[in-house]
Structure formats: C-alpha cells, structure tokens
Amino acid sequence: MEHKTKIHERIYAALILAFFYLPIIYVVFFSFNQSKSLTKFTGFSLQWYEKMFADRMIMSAIGYTVLCAVIATFVSTIVGTVTAIGLSKSKRVLREAVNQVNNLPMLNPDIVTAIGFMLFFTSLKIKTGFVTMVLAHIAFCIPYVILSVMPKLRTLDPNLAEAALDLGCTPMQALWKVIIPQIKPGIVSGALVAFTMSFDDFVISLFTTGPGVSNISIYVYGAVKRVNPTINALSAILVFVITAVLIIVNVVPMIRERRNAKNVNAAELETGVN
C-alpha cells in the first residue's frame, strides 16, 4: 500500500485511539479525587490510595492473583514444554488428538469451560478454593504453552539431538543442552502468555474459587455494586505497573540494540574495516 494518509483518516484513527484511552485516563484522574464522586472532581488527594493499601480484602486479592499466576506459569510452562517435546517425537495421531482436545477450551466460551471445572471439582467432593483455582489456571494455560513451543520444535533440526547422542550425551543431556536452548524463545513467550492469561483471568476464577479467596478481577466484580473509589486507585496502580512494564519491555531491547550497534562500530573501527 502507498504510505500516504489523508487528514480525515488521521483524525478517524485518533478518535478510535481516544475511545480506547479515554476511560483509562478518566479512572486514573478520578483516583486522585478528594470526594467520592465519579463525575465531579473536587480537589487532589491520595486518600483512596491510603484506603486501598489499608484494605485487607484488596491486598489479599492482589496476593492471590500474583501467587496464582506465578504457580500456574511455573507449572504450565514446564508441563507444556515437556509435552510439546514429547509430542514432536510422537505419532501423528496422538499429536493431532492432543491438539484437537487442547482446542476445546479455546473454542468454548470461558463460562462453559468454567462451569465444567466447577461441576468436576464439586462432583469429586473437592472443596473449591485457592487450590482448585490454581489447578484450573494450570489447565487452561498449558495449551497456550504447547502452542507457542510447538512451532519452535518443528523448525528444529532433528540431527542436532542425534549428533548430541552420537557424541556421547545421555538423552537427558541432549534434551537439556541441545533441545531446550534451541526452543527457549518459544518457552519464554509461552510463559509470558500463561502469566498474563492467569493474571487477568476472571470467568474461570469466579467459578473455581471458594469462599474467602478472590483475585483482583473477582474483587472488582463484587465491589462495583456501590460507588467505591478505592477501585479507581487499584485500577490506576494496575495501569501504572503495566505501563511501566511495557515501556521497560519495549525500550530495553532498543537500548541494547543501539549499544550492540555501537560495539560493532567500535570493533569495526579497531580492526580498520570501517
């Protein structure tokens, strides 16, 4: 396509972006409001932040969210990677069958997957709570890890592992020293997907958790029945943290690239290539 945009096209794109950002900016702004109102800004204050940090329910929700995401990411990344490696060496039938079943939770609406878990746990007389929530999170994260590791395995040269074995490696060593380093980018992106899926999950958590255990989403869902500006403060903090993380993630590679480019230039200068 030609790289020319007309002025009305730029305005349209700006309006769409404004639509995406307006509510977020609004909430952050009103988290500093002095009064309880969501429509009238009466003055600057940090009282909702103070209230938020003093609120044990919110603090425990944040704790459960982080703990659940860390455990679910850790377990699903290991299980997903091991399974993907196994599947890449398995018969086609098994591979296809696993892929089809893994597709089920992705094709089904979240609420269907969620009530499936709920019926399953309660029918087996397993008390719902933090453990069942983590189990459900692990279950819905593994397919995403498998999905991001599989393509890396497909492009992997099978001779590499064979060569490692021929050179005297045990299968374990071949796996650890040859296969894993090669598929690392897939494992890392799988872990990232798992973490964000678990951290942001609402529907599955709502149906698999038990009394007294809420994550951030469930807390927000339960607390919005009345006007509650501490949620504005909680939202604002989430926005700050995520923006900071995304800036770091996007800016650090840029700086590193620039530094590498500089080093290359310096090296070239030294060897007189330039």
Binding site: Y26, V27, F199, F202, L238, I242
Partner: peptide
C-alpha cells in the same frame, strides 16, 4: 494492544464514570 494488557474488569469498570 497496550490497553488490552489491563485487566478486563478494570477496563469495563472504567466506563462507569464516563
């Protein structure tokens, strides 16, 4: 993509004020 990283509940809740 940036706003999609923020919790869905929080993003939906954000509309109540506006």
């Amino acid at each position: 993509t940036l706003p999609m990283w923020i919790n869905v509940l929080v993003r939906t809740y954000a509309w109540r004020g506006l």
